[in-house]
Structure formats: structure tokens, C-alpha cells
Design a binder for these strands. Structure first.
Length: 659
DNA sequence: GTAGGGTTAG
């Protein structure tokens, strides 16, 4: 067989493998075109992994390709363009081949810049920056010298990795080699800097670029706009937009989308919507991404009506909702607990012929699990698992997490154990789920070792730190039910989190109703309110209180020996975190405002209370006794010492109004 | 053949 007959009888993968083997064993290797045809056919049969494994596992073919670098090299772009998962082994075979044969230097194999660029781009986009770089170095040795595009590809990859120093070094290297960087080079680096928030460096580079007579284009401005918006600096971004208009560069849809996104990030979807309308007036056509930004913005503010309205608008106006859009709206519906609507939308999505992706399935499973629809979740999972297509570790993470949080610990554990047999490696999320989830807790219970107050507080803090409010709430309820309560450090953390993001408070409705302890929290928040009212608050009160032993179990006598010198004009707030109900006597010297937050139980007890001195506890009272009361676990006493009546009345009014 | 915008999961 001399001329290769590319027949019509390739029907299955086996046929093509047989054919390929024939091809590589022919005395005169078939032409590149023939190889390409065959690979394309195989690719069309969607046997991606099989094609790949031919390279890495089949020694014969691999060896052949090693010696036909030109061939392999030319086939590679087909893989990359078709989005076939790229195997490093494949690449290594190629490189080894090139080096082994020294083809590059012998001019036998000379892929041109375009082939190199395609391969490099494919590699870098798959995260193989190192390999891409070594390919560049290889080019430098050969006859096809790297051009600006080859450099740009690597510079961009380095920037995307956040490796700006390396990117800039490479740019300097280009300059030395008389390949002056262009606008693409600068845009990549500016983007990298923006994403790292390096605004000063960004400005410097911008001027450097202009000094070299390389002028920013619409992409440059969009990079800046986007970077600013992602930091919430919408005003600055609008300024950039004004500036670009001044320079004669019209903002495009991407500019507007970036700013709309910025508004939504700040929780102002209406602002985004106004810009959207403004843009339409300017005759700039919105696209599906504009809609997604708006829909997501409204979803995150739980304004589902507005989100749904936009969603319907898409269907009416023409561009079909994409999987992306469906994912966004599904997430939004699940977030507000509208499971029924979510299910309907999912059904609609399927009947519209929109193919669900990993996001869709993750969102569905997560939504079901979060709302306790465990059976639904499991049956969907089973169905998906049977189909076998969408499986990766993150998919399983969702399921394992869902199972854990719903008490199906054995199932979660079994799935975890099954991972390796499926060739899936648990990642950091998998382990964190297993560790922080119910699993370990139940495990310890299973061994007759029961969680105590500390265990619960540690768990709760863990969830708080990573903003898993719903899990935190689950534990909070459980621990309260078992008679445990938040300790001072948990409260502190919670207060700090709420201070940063007040909406967290809304996410824990049980906080006010069911947890005895929470007057403590509310008082901590009060402290913050007071500070913001402009009342001086002694910042070291906590250390003072701590140093007086208030964090530990407190006896009345310890309390009694407390000696605080109140300085007039200072607001003192001290929190008492005691583990047993005690009698607290607060004695103050100056005009005093005392607020005691007590739960109903405490107040009931207080009503039948006669005199603190009737207890057998010794109490040393100094100064004037302004308030005597029973303090229960987690109660707090506020003492405001001030010479200024108006301060006190302001506070008083606030407290009465607020509570 | 290179640069810019949107959705989850610990």
C-alpha cells in the first residue's frame, strides 16, 4: 500500500484505531492531510479520551508520532480547537520528539508561527503556562523565531496566573529583542494589574504606553472599567467612561455591562437598570450578558419579581435564554426558597431544548439539599450518575455536602469512600465538607463522645468565618436545644460579621426568638450603635473585663469585689458572660444610666426578688447602688457614665425607640 | 494564531 486510501468504512472507533495503526506502520508515512482527516473523523465520533489515550498509551503510535513531529504538531491544533481535554503526556511526547530528533535545528520540522501560536494558546488556556513558556524557549532555538503574538500569549497567561513580575520581565525581553510590545501586550498586563488591585502600577503602565505612542483602545478602557467596578468603585468607572468618550472612544456593550455589574455588586440593581435603559436610549443593543447581570443583581437582592420580568423579556424579545441565564434564575429561585418555581423553570429549560450543564445540576442539587428535599436530590443525583456524563469532583462535593447537612452521614461517607474508585480525587472542598460537616460530629457521638459547649462554639465559628450562615443556624439551634450557648468569642465574631454585613442578621431569624442568649448579642450590637451615635466608648473595656476574670465562671463574690473607677464623660459598656445565674450589683459614682437586658425568664425571676443581701453571697458594694438585678446566662449590663445629660437622653431615646 | 463583560458548590 503506497498511496493511502482513506476509505469510507470508518464506522467506529475500532476501525479508526486499526486504520491508524496501519498508517503508522507504513513504510512511507501517509501525509499530514491523511492523519488530520483520520483524527478529525475520530473527533467527530466524540471519542476524545480514546484519541488522547492513543497518544499516551499506544507505544507504537506514540513512537511514530515522536518521529513525525510535523504530523503531531499539525494535528494538535485540531485537538485544541475542538476543546478536547489536553493531556500533558501528549505534549511531552511532542517535545521529546522534537528534541530527540533535533528536528527544529535540522529544519526538517518547521511548524510556522501560526501553528506554534495555536498550540501555545491551547496550552495556556488549559493552565499549562510553564509548558507554553518552554515552547517559546524552544522556538527561540529554532528557525521560526517567536513573533509578537507568541509573546503576547505567554504574557497574557502569566498575567492571568497573577504572575505579573514574570510577565513584565518577558515584556522587557521582547523589547530587547526588538519586538516592541503592542496594545495587546499592554492590555494583558493592565488587566493583570487591575485584577490584583494594583492601581498605581496600572497608572504608571498606562502612561508608559501612551508615551510610546501606543494608545488605549476600547478594550483598555473596558479592562479599567471592569477592574474598578469589581472593587465597587462605580463612580471611578463612570469617570473612566467619561474620559474615553472625551478621547473619542465610544463605550460599547462591554463597558456598560461592566458598570451594570458594578452596581449589582453594590446591591443596587436599580442603578444597573437605569444604566441599562440609558444604554438602550443610546441605541447600544443589550445582549444576553446584560440580562444575566441584571437578573442576577435582582436575584441577589431577592427581588424575584423583577428578575422574572427580565427573564420573560428575553424570551419575548428574541435572544433565547441560555443555559447561563437559566442557571442564574434557578439559583435565585432556590435562594428565596421558591422550589416549585425553580422546578418549573428547570422543566421549561429542558423542553426549550436548553442543555443543562454542571452549574445547572450543581444548583439544582444544592437547592434541593438546602431545602431539605433530600429524596428529590438523591433521585436526581442517581439519574445524573447513571448518565455518567457530568461527573467531576465538584459535582460530588455538592452531593456529599448536601448529604452531610441533611444528616445522611452514612451515605455521605460511602460516597466519599467511593470517589477514588471512580478516579476522582477529593479536593480541599471535599475534605472541608467532611471535616466541618456533620460527619465528624456524629462520628464522635457514635463513639460515645458527645460534643460540648466548646465543640459547638468551634463549629459555629467555623461556619461563621466562611459565611455559612444556614449551617451555623442549624448548629445554633441544635446546641441551644441541648442547653449550650454561644460563648463570648463566638458572640464577638458574630457581631463583627454583622457589623460588616448587617443582612446576616436577617438570615438568622431564630436569633431573636429562640436563643436565650441573644440579648447578649443585641447588646453588643447596641454598643456598636452607640459608637456610631458618637458616644465615646471605651475600647479596652473588653480587656478590662477579661482581666477581671469575667470570661470564666463567675461567682457572686468575685463580682462583688469588682472595682471599676468610672471616669465621667466616658461611656462604659461591659459585657458579662457568666455561666451561672448570679446576682449582679452595679455601683456607680456619677449620674448613671443602667440598662439591663434580660430575657423573660430573668425578669420573671427578678419580680420575686427581694434583696440581694438576703442571699448568702457576700457582696461588697462601693458607692451608690443604682441597680440591683439578677443576671442570667448571657445577660448584659450597660453602664453609661456621663456628665452630659443630653448624651444620656439621646441614648435613652434611641434605646426606647429602638427596642 | 494574542487582549475586555455574566451563573453554584467548603
Amino acid at each position: 500500500m503506497d498511496k493511502f486510501d482513506f476509505g469510507v468504512n470508518i464506522n467506529c472507533l475500532d476501525d479508526s484505531v486499526i486504520l491508524l495503526k496501519q498508517m503508522v506502520t507504513m513504510k512511507r508515512l501517509p501525509s499530514l492531510v491523511d492523519f488530520s482527516k483520520l483524527f478529525k473523523t475520530m473527533i467527530n465520533m466524540k471519542h476524545y479520551s480514546a484519541v488522547l489515550s492513543l497518544f499516551s498509551r499506544n507505544a507504537e503510535i506514540g513512537y511514530c508520532l515522536m518521529h513525525r513531529v510535523d504530523c503531531a504538531f499539525s494535528v494538535l491544533p485540531i485537538y485544541l480547537k475542538n476543546g478536547i481535554p489536553f493531556n500533558v503526556v501528549t505534549f511531552n511526547i511532542l517535545l521529546r520528539g522534537i528534541f530527540a530528533e533535533n528536528k527544529v535545528k535540522d529544519k526538517i520540522c518547521e511548524p510556522d508561527e501560526v501553528v506554534y501560536a495555536t498550540v501555545m494558546n491551547g496550552l495556556s488556556k488549559r493552565g499549562h503556562t510553564e509548558k507554553t513558556l518552554s515552547l517559546l524557549r524552544l522556538m527561540e532555538q529554532g528557525n521560526t523565531k517567536p513573533d509578537i503574538i507568541n509573546y503576547n500569549i505567554i504574557i497574557d497567561a502569566l498575567c492571568k496566573d497573577g504572575n505579573l513580575d514574570a510577565a513584565i520581565n518577558l515584556m522587557n525581553e521582547m523589547k530587547q529583542k526588538d519586538i516592541p510590545p503592542n496594545i495587546v501586550t499592554y492590555n494583558s498586563i493592565i488587566d493583570g494589574m487591575c485584577k490584583l488591585g494594583e492601581w498605581e502600577k496600572c497608572k504608571t503602565l498606562f502612561s508608559e504606553m501612551v508615551n510610546l505612542n501606543i494608545y488605549p483602545n476600547v478594550r483598555t478602557f473596558n479592562i479599567l472599567t471592569d477592574g474598578l467596578c469589581k472593587e465597587g468603585k462605580v463612580e471611578d468607572a463612570k469617570e473612566v467612561m467619561g474620559y474615553m468618550i472625551e478621547k473619542g472612544i465610544e463605550p460599547d456593550i462591554i463597558t456598560y455591562n461592566a458598570i451594570m455589574y458594578g452596581y449589582c455588586l453594590r446591591g443596587q440593581p436599580d442603578g444597573a437598570r437605569r444604566l441599562f435603559d440609558f444604554m438602550i436610549n443610546k441605541c447600544i443593543k443589550s445582549n444576553i450578558i446584560s440580562y444575566n447581570i441584571l437578573i442576577n443583581g435582582y436575584c441577589k437582592k431577592k427581588k424575584l419579581a423583577k428578575a422574572m420580568q427580565l427573564f420573560c423579556e428575553i424570551s419575548q424579545k428574541g435572544p433565547k435564554p441560555t443555559t447561563f441565564i437559566y442557571n442564574t434564575i434557578l439559583q435565585g429561585l432556590f435562594d428565596v426558597g421558591r422550589i416549585g418555581s425553580a422546578k418549573n423553570i428547570y422543566a421549561e429549560m429542558l423542553s426549550a431544548g436548553c442543555i443543562p450543564d454542571l452549574y445547572t445540576h450543581g444548583t439544582l442539587l444544592n437547592g434541593y439539599f438546602k431545602h431539605g428535599l433530600v429524596e428529590e436530590a438523591i433521585s436526581l443525583f442517581n439519574k445524573l450518575e447513571k448518565q455518567g456524563e457530568n461527573t467531576d469532583i465538584e459535582f460530588y462535593n455538592v452531593v456529599i455536602n448536601g448529604l452531610c447537612k441533611n444528616g445522611k452521614l452514612d451515605k455521605a461517607h460511602a460516597l466519599f469512600e467511593k470517589l477514588s474508585s471512580m478516579g476522582l480525587l477529593p479536593n480541599v472542598r471535599t475534605y472541608t465538607t467532611m471535616i466541618t460537616g456533620f460527619y465528624m460530629l456524629r462520628k464522635m457521638e457514635g463513639n460515645n463522645c458527645f460534643p460540648d459547649n466548646v465543640t459547638y462554639n468551634v463549629m459555629v465559628q467555623g461556619f461563621l468565618r466562611c459565611s455559612r450562615i444556614s449551617e451555623m443556624t442549624t448548629f445554633m439551634k441544635e446546641m441551644t436545644g441541648r442547653g449550650f450557648s454561644f460563648d463570648a468569642s463566638t458572640i464577638e465574631l458574630l457581631v463583627n460579621i454583622i457589623r460588616e454585613n448587617p443582612s446576616v442578621l436577617d438570615m438568622i431569624p431564630e436569633l431573636h426568638l429562640k436563643n436565650n442568649n441573644l440579648c447578649f448579642l443585641r447588646n453588643q450590637i447596641m454598643k456598636w450603635v452607640l459608637t456610631s451615635l458618637g458616644l465615646t466608648c471605651n475600647s479596652c473595656y473588653e480587656n478590662r473585663v477579661r482581666s477581671m476574670g469575667f470570661r470564666t465562671e463567675l461567682t457572686t463574690s468575685q463580682l462583688g469585689s469588682l472595682d471599676i473607677k468610672f471616669k465621667p464623660g466616658t461611656l462604659w459598656v461591659f459585657s458579662v458572660n457568666i455561666m451561672i445565674p448570679s446576682v449582679l450589683v452595679v455601683s456607680l459614682y456619677d449620674s448613671v444610666f443602667v440598662l439591663s437586658e434580660m430575657n423573660t425568664q430573668t425578669i420573671a425571676r427578678l419580680k420575686g426578688y427581694e434583696s440581694p443581701f438576703s442571699t448568702d453571697k457576700k457582696i461588697i458594694v462601693r458607692g451608690r447602688v443604682d441597680m440591683i438585678g439578677l443576671v442570667s446566662i448571657g445577660d448584659i449590663v450597660w453602664a453609661v457614665v456621663s456628665r452630659h445629660r443630653d448624651e444620656l437622653s439621646r441614648l435613652n431615646a434611641y434605646i426606647q425607640g429602638g427596642y
